[in-house]
Design a protein around this nucleic acid. Structure first.
Lengths: 325, 325
DNA sequence: TTGTAAGCGTTATCAT
DNA sequence: ATGATAACGCTTACAA
């Protein structure tokens, strides 16, 4: 490694004291403009950048935001990383990404690591409540993303609303028989769907919920489950794009084509939706990260429970049913 | 924030001097076992973790590895992040992810940021050669991933070999007419395909290369291009999964089904391959990151140009052609 | 407007 | 085996 320059070196070159260089670097106005110009030239000529560790040590602020994610198996997390890096960068912050792999002990380790690094804030898609409790007790500056828990600051997408928006879209296209395929722990999407149905005084048949393992890319038993439906739906809502992909494959076998014969609407709006022209419900990941960082960087903050509305991206896979009511 | 504990605090609690605590933390053997036990208990009881910035400042090693990626638009990068975080973590390192967004000035800024943070190594999927030159001049500990450049240390997947492996697989299934859809800057995949053809003294027809924009999820003009092929291939190799998805859609319109009528083999092996049962060529991203980190952490190193072999993941989309030759 | 000096929490070099 | 002490590179009073 080349010897890295310090403020002392710059000071010597400029014939001033080291603190004066510090003042220039930090835009302190109490510096003679002429001196400032001279120092700035030297800094730029030499490509000097102040040592972050020294700065952190002295000021207790690392300009780092730590991000602990539940796992990295899904394209969705790439979006989170992409936006958190972007927004943080725009605010002069660098991000450290940590994967807890769904393991609460690893999650705790990551928290301690970030604390030791004096991070200015922690964004967490959590595994264990006890770790959140720890963060709270430590008075850490943190915010939960992607899910909601009472008494903790969090930013999340309302999937109930997502279910409603999806159903409303299909309803307006004259669909009345809608099937949901998926599984989320609390079935919040399904809840939204059912809520919309009851608001419209419509009946949501039990057989219109097909439960699947959403982490499984290959849904072997989907065919069977579809065949067992007596009152076959005119539209499907899938919990993610991969399920939609499997569904299209299965329906194809039955000679049912989208959107001619049947409508499909997915959640997540990944590149698969784009490629297949599937109408999809998009998590506003960019907004989520923006809100999370805004919260962390805001000084005088109140605990927040920020719910974001998902966004419907309309494409070819859903179409008007030509049935008069 | 709760007042964070320092070695001084622990020392006071243990009735020893601060350097003794440091010795315990760093496993220095010259400490009385009894004293060590006492101090270790206090450390664990209090949940003390030494301040990283102070450590970094003093030791010039941050235990951080910086990763600068060309962009984050592709699932492939998530894999890189996932594995680099994993391997780094296993070696006691934390990673900082930076996105250069294909912008060389931003890339330079990121490099300076990482230098200021005293990172122990930089992994870069580069934008501009001038920045690599800079890294070299600065005598930085860095390694390029995902592409190869002469005179720089790099770890990459040999796409020529990928092309060959793909073609060989199809060849062994009796395919002789193979079409490649895609575009990579240097068409290294195509190069491998052509090399295999000429090794077997087969002719690769010009019309068997369909050029597309690989960043575009929706290939509108694919249909037209397919229709213009006179000697229609029995198998397709696509530069990525999204192209394969588009292709399947198009072939479906023509009444051609996979693998019954036609074989498809893709590059990248994302979740799409899994969902659609497409035989695919997988980049060994895990190995790439492992090699990259091994290189960075190895003291007495020689410049490397490490080429990794891609891996064929066989699935249903390719099948034996029942044609006697 | 600028310089001196102290201190952030470590590690490492001395003594003892 | 352990305690002083200096030093890493910076920020921030305080003094001049």
């Amino acid at each position: 490694m080349k010897k890295t320059l310090t403020m002392k070196d710059i000071a010597k070159l400029a014939g001033v004291s080291q603190p004066t260089v510090s003042r220039v670097v930090n835009g302190n106005p109490t510096v003679d403009p002429e001196v400032r110009a001279r120092i700035e030239k030297i800094i730029s000529d030499q490509g000097f950048k102040p040592n972050s560790s020294a700065k952190t040590l002295r000021s207790n602020s690392s300009k780092i935001i730590g991000v602990i994610l539940f796992d990295l198996s899904n394209y969705y997390y790439l979006e989170m990383i992409k936006y958190v890096e972007k927004v943080a960068g725009e605010n002069g912050y660098t991000v450290i990404i940590l994967n807890s792999q769904g393991d609460k002990y690893l999650e705790k380790e990551h928290i301690l690591n970030l604390q030791a690094r004096n991070v200015d804030g922690i964004i967490i898609a959590p595994v264990a409540k006890e770790n959140l409790e720890f963060l709270k007790n430590q008075n850490e500056n943190f915010v939960i993303v992607d899910c909601t828990l009472p008494n903790y600051p969090c930013v999340y997408t309302s999937l109930i609303q997502g279910g409603k928006i999806a159903t409303e879209h299909l309803f307006n296209l004259n669909h009345r028989k809608i099937c949901f395929i998926g599984a989320d722990k609390k079935n919040t999407k399904l809840l939204g769907i059912k809520e919309f149905f009851s608001e419209k005084d419509l009946n949501f048949s039990d057989e219109w919920f097909i439960e699947t393992d959403p982490t499984n890319a290959n849904l072997d038993n989907l065919s069977l489950k579809l065949n067992s439906i007596k009152d076959f739906p005119t539209a499907f809502i899938t919990s993610n794009d991969i399920i939609a992909l499997n569904l299209i494959k299965e329906l194809d076998k039955k000679g049912l084509y989208t959107p001619k014969d049947i409508s499909i609407l997915s959640f997540d709006d990944t590149i698969i939706s784009t490629a297949l022209n599937i109408t999809s419900i998009r998590h506003p990941v960019d907004l989520m990260m923006k809100n999370a960082i805004d919260y962390l960087l805001n000084e005088n903050k109140l605990p927040i429970q920020k719910s974001l509305s998902p966004i419907l991206i309309e494409r070819d896979s859903t179409s008007l049913l030509d049935i008069p009511f």
